[in-house]
């Protein structure tokens, strides 16, 4: 990110050395990160990695053992600031926790009033959110009669009813069937279009890849932070897949002669070539193959999924630990 661009970003979360210990157990260790205004930040990690603990610390639900953090302009650990912080943020916890015997409107009214929203504004927000989620016609039905996906949407609406500047979503699609998960995911994408700042805890890597601007991978400690593309490049570099009729050592030599020394792997009819700049290198690869008499079938960029990035980091950390 260019320096000027980075400097112009407003930090919604600025954590330095945030640590949480429960007795002898360290749940989160020395977490330092910045989340910028308008950004969707994905927080990935296996179960027990400390994701929920982090959200609870950042939302001032639990105290931190050490470290500091500013969230939505409020400093954690100051009583007055913490009430103000809870006014500015919205939280969707892992368990939706709706009042099942009452309706969607009653659930939202209660939380809107706890946030001291003026009645007219509250009514308008409830209608806007429920219409946005296709729940307006179901608004007076008890929550107990809703599907899981509908409940999840009401819970997200509850987190948004007071127009928070920062939204924390803790596993919003966990335990949902694929259709409900897609509905919720689409809704998060709608929020992204509105340039909301979202902190998304998830272990659905494809979800993070599709939704998040940047991701952080946590396993008690923060292993890495970056955009999914940047993480891929950082871990693997760019690779080009070249499918030819008959791969041979002669073709490998032709490529390395043209591009300079680099790793080239042959597997079946495929050669995987490490490249630094695909736009510059790929035409050279094609020219090298053709020039060496190879018959080119296909040339494409290899893009490891975020899942591969994640698994590699988690395993590396596991074996290091």
């Amino acid at each position: 990110m260019p320096l000027a661009e980075a400097a112009s970003l407003v930090s919604m979360i600025h954590a330095v050395g945030l640590t949480k210990r429960f007795g002898n157990l360290t749940a989160v260790e020395e977490l330092s990160l910045d989340v910028h205004e308008g950004e969707v930040f994905g927080f990935l990690g296996p179960n027990g990695a400390g994701k929920t603990t982090t959200v609870r610390m950042l939302t001032s639900l639990i105290s931190r053992s050490s470290g500091t953090a500013e969230v939505a302009g409020c400093t954690l650990g100051r009583d007055a600031d913490e009430l103000e912080l809870r006014r500015r943020i919205g939280l969707l916890p892992e368990n939706v926790g709706l009042y099942e015997s009452t309706s969607a409107v009653q659930n939202l009214e209660y939380f809107g009033r706890l946030h001291r929203l003026p009645e007219a504004k509250l009514r308008a927000n409830i209608e806007r959110l429920l219409r946005m989620m296709d729940l307006w016609n179901e608004r007076d039905r008890p929550i107990a009669t809703y599907s899981k996906g509908m409940k999840q949407k009401v819970a997200i609406a509850r987190a948004l009813v007071h127009d928070p500047v920062l939204l924390f979503l803790d596993e919003p699609t966990a335990n949902l069937d694929p259709e409900s998960a897609k509905t919720v995911r689409d809704f998060i994408l709608e929020l992204k279009k509105e340039r909301r700042t979202i902190f998304l805890n998830t272990h659905h890597l494809d979800e993070a890849e599709r939704i998040c601007d940047r991701v952080g991978i946590l396993r008690t400690r923060l292993l890495t932070v970056g955009s999914p593309e940047a993480l891929r490049d950082r871990l693997w570099g760019s690779r080009t897949v070249v499918r030819v009729e008959r791969p041979s050592e002669a073709l490998v030599v032709a490529i390395t002669d043209r591009l300079g020394p680099r790793k080239v792997e042959i597997s079946g009819d495929t050669m995987v070539v490490e490249v630094t700049d695909p736009d510059r290198d790929n035409p050279e690869i094609a020219a090298a193959v053709v020039g060496a008499g190879g018959r080119l079938r296909q040339i494409s960029q290899l893009s490891p999924s975020l899942e591969e990035v994640y698994l590699r980091l988690i395993h590396e950390q596991g074996s290091a630990g």
Partner: peptide, 14 residues
Amino acid sequence: IEKSLEPLLATPTT
């Protein structure tokens, strides 16, 4: 049981 305490605690209520 309804796990509704966490969202309640996340509101500006002491």
